[in-house]
Design a protein around this nucleic acid. Structure first.
Length: 641
RNA sequence: GCUCCCGUAGCUCAGUUGGAUAGAGCAACAGCCUUCUAAGCUGUGGGUCGCACGUUCAAGUCGUGCCGGGGGCACCA
């Protein structure tokens, strides 16, 4: 259409040829060598003039290519991510993202943070693609881990509920936190179990009482678990991670979710009562796909011979609730209000408490954020749900699995742990709450904030203290979130202090820095009384723009612009591949690209007004894309750095 | 025994679904602050993509088999 300036045909012949060969094969089955096609293209199309390098892979690039100036004009005035910030239609299908990781028995460690950062970022990605999202954090308040801490309080420390409340107040007064106290106590109980069989017996008793509810020990456990949940909420809030609902296991038990699911499963005949064999007296779900032998070895027991339900049974019922196919609901009460005004609700079995809850569950799709060690169990649960509801079960629930965060041997030593020669030889050591071995989330955030503050102090000594702290906090959050997001989900993160505390290289800090620099260009611009909107008209002249792109350095400007234009596509890709790391890599490449861009092109001093306007428009597109990408990862851009 | 994941530069990791000469960050060495912020930029060295066959115009990517590392396969949660 336009008369595009001239460049090398060779640059475009190969990608076009690859695309043609691919389509030819798809549509006619004919196989052609792309190199041959490229040669034909070169010889037959020499009379045409092309614009420049092809930067867009895939089917759409040719159109983009020939209409570059118009494309630029259209993109420049468009918002970076149209769906971002716009709340989804209330009638849109709901997606539930559930974090399942941290037990409410002690402080959260870095492994729990990976779970929550992953879940929170993925949730933000889904929102950015226009989905309606509900974020849940499952609270296993009746499990062994809570039972262990309760055992510690009662049988090691001889404390009553009143004593614990007193202790809690003392800790608060001393500037210490309840979850840290529980961390140590939990490790102490773990030690004690090794030599004290009697104590281990107590665990079974306590566990039973917790499940039963309505007794003194259950009340004590309730207090301990709730206090730990409050601590976890605070810790995660530091990282801008917030939840909508905290579903508790105690309600799943007390409201008898399982009975309802059990009834349905019996009616549909998807489970059987065994009268002979090794599973005699149990209700089992036949499970052939994992069977190794012709015995029913792989059959999964859902109800034990003593009549109690297994974890898998409970989880099937819970999954059914999430999908809205159980036919039962929790009661809810507000639990906590975040500083941004958002409420987090918690489940309860008291119908009187339930007043204005917005309604939870009924997800069209469910994402379960659980580490990959639970893959088998997740699969079993999924098959169980699918047995009840074939059309929903398989498709609607997705295991967003991730590998654990382990410690490098040197990190374990730095934490003051004596490690065996055997462990020293290993590439990593698994964290263990029972041994007290792990990096507590708050400790790490504290260290990051302190390091960042020292850097800010050195660079901006005249800033008010509050402002310096705010900046340091944003840098710390950016560093930690980026560090956990840059790895793909199935990579084991071997935690190393030096790497995690770094503000240099491929870090969140570099991304933030780049955005801050971009912002300061526009701050200077408006300080000089210039308006960006006026500059848009200069750039919307296709002929002038086309000339600039074909001039010296034009390809570089074009590449920068194209990269910045790919945010929406990247977010969509991260969503469809369930991989937040794609977005993290994109943000880093964008930031790095921009660092080079403003190094090579002096923007504000640029004498040619058209080129200056174009550079400014490109820089503006970059900073908006970068800011939106970082925001989608829960990373804020500080005012200064 | 069955099953899933991983193996890419000295180290830690990407690799856009099979495309052009395999990329980043650390670490090492050499440069760049009178300039829109040096938490940055530039350059150098560093690769038999674990091994071997196979599929095809084309394989780090797909298939099979080995070798090496990790996880998971309860009337635990």
């Amino acid at each position: 259409s336009e008369t595009p300036p001239k460049t090398e045909l060779g640059d475009v012949a190969f990608p076009i040829a690859f695309e043609l060969a691919k389509r030819l094969k798809q549509e006619t089955g004919e196989k052609r060598n792309p190199r041959e096609i490229a040669e034909i293209l070169k010889s037959s199309l020499e009379e045409f003039e092309f614009v420049g390098k092809v930067d867009v892979a895939g089917a759409g690039y040719l159109n983009v290519y020939l209409n570059r100036p118009q494309f630029v004009a259209a993109r420049i005035s468009a918002p970076p991510l149209p769906s971002l910030g716009k709340s989804a239609d209330a009638s849109a299908p709901k997606v539930c993202v559930e974090h399942t990781s941290v037990n409410p028995n002690k402080a959260a460690h870095i492994g729990h943070v990976r779970n929550s950062v992953l879940g929170d970022t993925f949730q933000r990605i889904l929102k950015a693609t226009g989905k309606r999202v509900e974020v849940q954090n499952y609270i296993d308040n009746t499990g062994v881990q809570v039972a262990d801490v309760v055992v510690g309080f009662i049988y090691i420390e001889n404390k009553t509920l009143a004593d614990i409340k007193l202790l809690d107040a003392e800790l608060l007064a001393a500037g210490k936190t309840f979850d840290y106290y529980c961390w140590d106590l939990y490790a102490k109980v773990g030690q004690e179990y090794q030599t004290n069989a009697e104590l281990k017996q107590k665990r079974a008793e306590v566990l039973h009482l917790l499940e039963e509810g309505n007794n003194e020990i259950a009340d004590l456990a309730e207090y301990v678990a709730t206090r730990n949940v409050e601590c976890i909420i605070d810790t995660m809030q530091r990282l801008s991670i917030r939840y909508d609902l905290l579903p508790r296991e105690s309600e799943i038990l007390h409201l008898h979710f399982w009975d309802k699911a059990f009834e349905q499963m019996k009616q549909l005949g998807v489970i059987q009562y065994e009268t002979e064999g090794k599973n005699s007296g149990c209700w089992v779900m036949p499970f052939e796909s994992h069977a190794g032998t012709d015995e029913h070895e792989a059959d999964k027991i859902l109800v034990r011979s003593n009549g109690t339900v297994t974890y898998t049974g409970k989880d099937i019922a819970y999954q059914m609730w999430k999908l809205g196919i159980l036919g039962m609901d929790f009661c809810y009460r507000p639990f906590h209000k975040y500083p941004n005004g958002q409420d987090v609700w918690i489940t309860t079995s008291d119908p009187a408490a339930d007043q204005d809850s917005p309604g939870f569950g009924h997800g069209e799709t469910i994402y379960n954020v659980i580490d990959s060690r639970q893959s088998y169990t997740q699969d079993v649960v999924k098959k169980g749900v699918a047995a009840v509801s074939p059309d929903r079960g398989e498709r609607s629930s997705i295991h967003l699995s991730y590998e654990m965060v382990a410690l490098s041997p040197s990190a374990a030593e730095e934490l003051g742990f004596v490690i065996s020669d055997e462990d020293k030889a290993r590439s990593f050591i698994e964290m263990s709450g029972r041994k007290g071995l792990g990096v507590k989330a708050d400790d790490l955030i504290d260290r990051l904030e302190a390091n960042a503050l020292a850097e800010v102090e050195a660079r901006h000594p005249d800033e008010p203290t509050e402002e310096k702290k705010t900046i340091a906090h944003k840098i710390a959050v950016g560093a930690l979130r980026y560090f956990l997001l840059k790895f793909t989900r199935n990579t084991v993160i071997v935690f190393d202090f030096k790497e995690a505390l770094s503000f240099e290289g491929e870090t969140g800090c570099l991304c933030q820095y780049s955005a801050v620099r971009a912002n300061s260009i526009f701050r200077k611009l408006s300080e000089g009384g210039e308006n960006l909107d006026d500059l848009l008209t200069v750039v919307s002249d296709p002929r002038k723009t086309a000339q600039l792109f074909s001039a010296e350095g034009g390809d570089e400007i074009w590449s920068m612009f194209m990269l910045a234009s790919r945010l929406e596509e990247t977010v969509a890709q991260a969503a469809s591949q369930n991989e937040p790391a794609i977005l993290a890599k994109y943000a880093f490449n964008l930031a790095k690209g921009f660092n080079l861009f403003y190094h090579n092109h002096k923007i504000l001093p640029e004498p040619d007004p058209t080129k200056r306007a174009l550079l400014l428009c490109v820089a503006d597109t970059v900073r908006r894309s970068l800011t939106a990408a970082l925001d989608t990862m829960g990373i804020e851009v500080p005012a200064k750095m």
